[in-house]
Design a binder for these strands. Structure first.
Lengths: 119, 119
DNA sequence: GACATTTATCGCATATCTACGATATACAAT
DNA sequence: ATTGTATATCGTAGATATGCGATAAATGTC
């Protein structure tokens, strides 16, 4: 059991869910911030700042790259990871748009229906 | 091994990460949308719409409630789950603020440093 | 009280995530 | 060619997440 049911939902939801998953661990948020703040591209420098092993940081970078939030090029022994601002802003926009859309279609709840019958 | 290192990051990151985790599964996004769109409070009605068992939906509701994105009151055999718009907007705002802050402190990368030396 | 309805919780199986050390890979420098 | 440096990948262990059926709990109905 415990089959994967994620594909049975709206494609739009899956995209947002995967973006959220990328940010669902503080280490990955921290990595993105380091890339922005310190103007750092190098995996090794990130490793020095964060309390994580090199292999762990590399895995997190891989996930961030997979979803498109960062880009990464390897030039021999050096890496160059950069933030993909377009995708990051898209993430923020998709979430805001989702919430705004939901808000606009919502009506008052628990006031007129069965549940409003508070004694 | 595999110890939990989440507490070793900024508290702000942990809060955003937990909010993102709540939205990191399309089922939970779908649940929130159903609560908004259909103006539904009842767990059982959500179960009918989504391709999930009642116990699974109940678990997702519990997680959404735990992080504060929805509120839930049980009146005997009936439930009343409502969206917490304040918290939802806070989620959207925190993410946007984080990204904007990162963007404002960022400088160009891979253009003047070692990595810019493209042959 | 007996029964139906609705929801939460328990127990369990499987899947995925997190983290690390060890190792492989790719390139620069000597 | 050998060495050194930086990074990715592999293997693995433990922790969480996902999902369901069965069951318990709370309330209304007969």
């Amino acid at each position: 059991m415990a089959q994967n049911k994620k594909d049975q939902f709206e494609k739009n939801f899956l995209d947002i869910a995967e973006l959220c998953k990328a940010f669902s661990h503080p280490a990955r948020i921290a990595i993105v911030k380091v890339l922005a703040q310190k103007n750092i591209c190098i995996c090794g420098e990130i490793v020095e700042i964060l309390p994580l092993a090199q292999s762990t940081v590399s895995q997190h970078l891989k996930e961030l790259k997979k979803i498109g939030l960062i880009t990464g090029e390897i030039e021999g022994p050096k890496s160059c990871y950069c933030i993909n601002w377009k995708r990051l802003n898209e993430f923020s926009g998709l979430l805001k748009n989702l919430i705004d859309t939901m808000h606009s279609m919502s009506q008052s709840c628990c006031q007129g229906g069965i549940h409003g019958k508070k004694k």
